[in-house]
């Protein structure tokens, strides 16, 4: 007997959430570390944009951060919706997908804007 397609799908979603959680853990540490350092150094917004904006490495880092968040959060939201509200799982999945796409779009727009502010692209 092999797993039913929906069971396999659930397992893949669980794996995606765990992998994205591992990525997020690293990203959050780097992001918070960076914020603490800039605050301690007394940098202005313009100075931060000058150092980080337009930098391909930081751009790639924040793209990964946004995508990991956009994968991780909707999977959890789907579970919360299906457990706490009387809606079918596939409807919860659809709502979570829309939320994830919205989250990714907003996040990527912000990252792209920051990159351009610093002179990138």
């Amino acid at each position: 007997m092999s797993a039913r397609p929906d069971t396999l799908g659930e397992t893949r979603l669980w794996l995606a959430q765990r992998f994205s959680a591992a990525v997020l853990a690293i990203c959050v540490v780097i992001h918070l570390g960076g914020m603490i350092m800039t605050v301690q150094a007394g940098l202005t917004a313009a100075e931060i944009i000058g150092r980080v904006g337009g930098h391909a490495g930081w751009f790639a880092f924040y793209v990964v951060f946004v995508l990991a968040a956009a994968i991780h959060a909707p999977i959890g939201l789907r579970t919360v919706l299906s457990e706490m509200m009387a809606i079918p799982k596939h409807h919860a999945g659809l709502l979570a997908l829309v939320f994830g796409l919205f989250q990714a779009a907003l996040g990527l727009k912000a990252v792209w804007g920051f990159y351009r502010l610093g002179g990138g692209a």
């Binding site: 007997m1 092999s2 797993a3 039913r4 069971t7 659930e10 397992t11 669980w14 299906s82 799982k89």
Partner: peptide, 12 residues
């Protein structure tokens, strides 16, 4: 058994 206990009715 692993196939039976996977998924949102199982361990996940």
């Amino acid at each position: 058994r692993l196939a039976a206990v996977a998924g949102d009715a199982g361990c996940h």
